[in-house]
Nucleic acid binder design. Structure first.
Length: 220
DNA sequence: GCCAACGTTGGC
DNA sequence: GCCAACGTTGGC
């Protein structure tokens, strides 16, 4: 996953988005089937999430000669501390992004680094629209199978809010998760552990608030 | 529509 | 660098 600065300008052009297209969604994870369904994201009674966790890599890593590094400091450094979350190429992650509403909060999670964990908080400032990198042959996340008249991939814009008072390592969150999986507690079903490889995940408000409360506690 | 092979993610 | 977990692909 990566965000990038160059993308911001083109955002303005894409205001006449594809609200219609964003309404259709391929089925989440059903093994390659690409069914196109008329939307209501999932099942009509699927829980509505309002908090999120989004993963990105803070360290340099080269994919096809391109550095995919994008940590919270990189987001903070962008104009208006705002960037687009492009490059998501997983249907479940994409569908969660399509459920995001302006103003909602998301944790910025640092993955694939020395100490993975939650670094800070950001806010959704623009709801899902076409991820233009899917059409860019030069881009790491170019998708030859996606056509401009029926784009497959979406992204949202996010704005930096703040760092957590202290970095919350995955290892610590995991201790709480294991503890609470046994005895009960807000993190017992946290997607970070039950859906380990998903790069955009929903959190219940209970999960979100509990994680947030940890920044005022001593490391476990 | 099943499922084995394959590829990727990402913690360790 | 290894490899487990798991999503995706494609043959049947």
């Amino acid at each position: 996953m990566k965000l990038s600065k160059e993308k911001l300008q083109s955002d303005k052009l894409s205001c006449l988005d594809n609200t219609e297209k964003a309404e259709e969604s391929e089925t989440a994870s059903s093994g390659g089937k690409r069914k196109v369904v008329k939307e209501s994201s999932e099942s009509p009674d699927s829980p509505e999430f309002s908090r999120w966790l989004m993963k990105s890599e803070p360290d340099s890593r080269f994919e096809n000669g391109i550095d995919v590094k994008f940590g919270i400091e990189d987001l903070k450094a962008l104009p208006d501390q705002t960037g687009c979350w492009d490059g998501v190429r997983n249907y479940q992650a994409r569908n969660f992004m399509r459920q995001m509403k302006e103003g909602q909060s998301a944790f910025f999670y640092h993955s694939n680094c020395k100490e993975p964990g939650i670094a800070g908080i950001m806010k959704i400032v623009k709801e899902a629209y076409v991820d233009h990198t899917q059409f860019d042959r030069k881009d790491v996340h170019y998708d030859a199978g996606s056509k401009p008249d029926n784009p497959k991939w979406s992204m949202v814009d996010v704005q930096y809010q703040r760092m957590l008072k202290r970095y919350l390592p995955l290892s610590e969150l995991k201790k709480y998760h294991l503890q609470q999986r046994a005895k009960g507690g807000p993190l017992k079903d946290m997607a970070l552990f039950t859906r380990a490889r998903l790069s955009v995940q929903p959190l219940t408000t209970e999960e979100f608030d509990f994680v947030l409360s940890l920044e005022d506690k001593e490391p476990l």
